[in-house]
């Protein structure tokens, strides 16, 4: 079904069931037409991920068609790298830093706190699809602030379990979050 959607603005808005807006994706793809198709794949998927929050099936099909890359390759890349998500994501993402220093200095307690508070483990979403808990298998590069938590692209340092629970409450109520570089 996804394959039947063709490129161009005409399908925009007429897609049934709240499907995605294609104009942004075509604009992204437009920018990479001069590139070597294989080289362009990951930067392009990065931009799509950034724009939509996940990699919609429709777009992998579109890229495959337009850049002549096998669909299996795109799917392979999109599922291999940890930056890409295949499905639409919950509203808020709680990302616990699990670098070595954070891990040995308190992120285990934070993990427990989230588990107690929301009942979710790493990689799981709450039943109301509001929160997802993820573990950062990399370093935020600010180890002086360990342990660190990122909620919706805002970083918090020296987080205690109590503070994290508070932050989750604030986020649930739509408390003031600024976007962050």
């Amino acid at each position: 079904m996804a394959l039947s959607i063709t490129r161009g603005g005409s399908s925009e808005g007429s897609n049934p069931g709240g499907s995605i807006e294609l104009a942004k994706a075509t604009a992204i793809m437009e920018r990479y037409t001069t590139w070597n198709a294989n080289e362009a794949l990951i930067p392009m998927l990065q931009e799509i991920q950034h724009e939509y929050g996940y990699i919609p099936d429709v777009l992998t099909a579109l890229i495959s068609e337009q850049f002549d890359i096998p669909l299996t390759q795109i799917y392979g890349v999109a599922t291999f790298y940890s930056d890409f998500r295949a499905l639409e994501q919950p509203e808020h993402r709680i990302l616990l830093c699990e670098g070595l220093a954070c891990y040995v200095c308190g992120s285990q307690q934070l993990h427990r706190a989230v588990k107690d508070k929301l009942g979710i483990d790493y990689g799981e979403a709450t039943p109301d699809n509001k929160f997802i808990l993820e573990r950062a298998n990399f370093c935020f590069g600010a180890c002086q602030l360990m342990p660190m938590v990122e909620i919706d692209h805002t970083f918090y340092g020296n987080v205690t379990p109590e503070k994290l629970v508070e932050l989750i409450d604030q986020t649930a109520q739509g408390g003031g979050h600024s976007s962050h570089e």
Binding site: Q46, V77, D83, F138
Partner: peptide
């Protein structure tokens, strides 16, 4: 300048 996409193995 190329951007990666996560994955420690990269």
């Amino acid at each position: 300048v190329m951007i990666a996409a996560g994955a420690y193995i990269s």
